[in-house]
Amino acid sequence: MNRTVLRLLKRLGFYALIAVVLFYAIFPFYYAVVTSLKPSSELFRVDFWPSSFDLVNYARILGEKSFVRAILNSILVSFSVVFIALLLGLTASYALGRVRFRGRTSVLLIILGVSMFPQVAVLSGLFEVIRVLDLYNNPAGLVLSYTIFTLPFTVWVLTTFMRQLPQELEEAAIMDGATPWITITRVFLPLMWPAMATTGLLAFIAAWNEFLFALTFTLTDDQRTVPVAIALISGGSQHELPWGPIMAASVTVTVPLVVLVMIFQRRIVSGLTAGAVKG
């Protein structure tokens, strides 16, 4: 009797905890969705349940050319960053994980060290670099700076993963006449999907949400990315913050992220190397 009550209480506590965590994690986003669906007249009434289903905010946002343009810029920049970071990360991790050379550990430590710097610390230096390369107010400048910040993490994770792949697999490929490039792309890559998906996703999120560089390195509306565009959405007057459209814009740009995570979480499974070695 006593034991059953205790077990019930434990159960209850467990689910209560889950509820708290879920609420904590989801509520802000939920509230953003609810707000985005309200017309501006009802904006400051606190409603916990969707009281209306008004798409006017979405219409306004998507009707604005500069916002659509910002989304396209964000897509271009984020995908480029992911592609470049994974390509460089994969090849670098092959060198760092599979090739023995002097100073390998130091290189890895330097890579890790570089990723510790706060963005602001390199902002002015990076600005000079971008000016010299003539990439100011150009999405390519953002791709360059995001890649710099994403690459250390990507290289680090992929190297760790690459090291765990069996040595004999690589040697078998060599005996089959594979060059390092073929070994990477046709033997290792298919086995690295979990790591690639994870790092790629994180790189994508970082690039998609980045604000500081995006604000500093762009000038005109048609070169901006989404986070900056959202921040610059202005209301009817100087004293009005247009919460409705801001919320609608935020939801619009977050949905792709959620969808991406949903798709790739299936890929983020280990055990893909099963069957390579032993019985």
Binding site: E168, E171, A172, A173, M175, L191, A276, V277
Partner: peptide, 10 residues
């Protein structure tokens, strides 16, 4: 060469 761990491409 045939490897001890087989080293098949999974």
């Amino acid at each position: 060469m045939v490897f001890q761990s087989y080293a098949l491409y999974p």
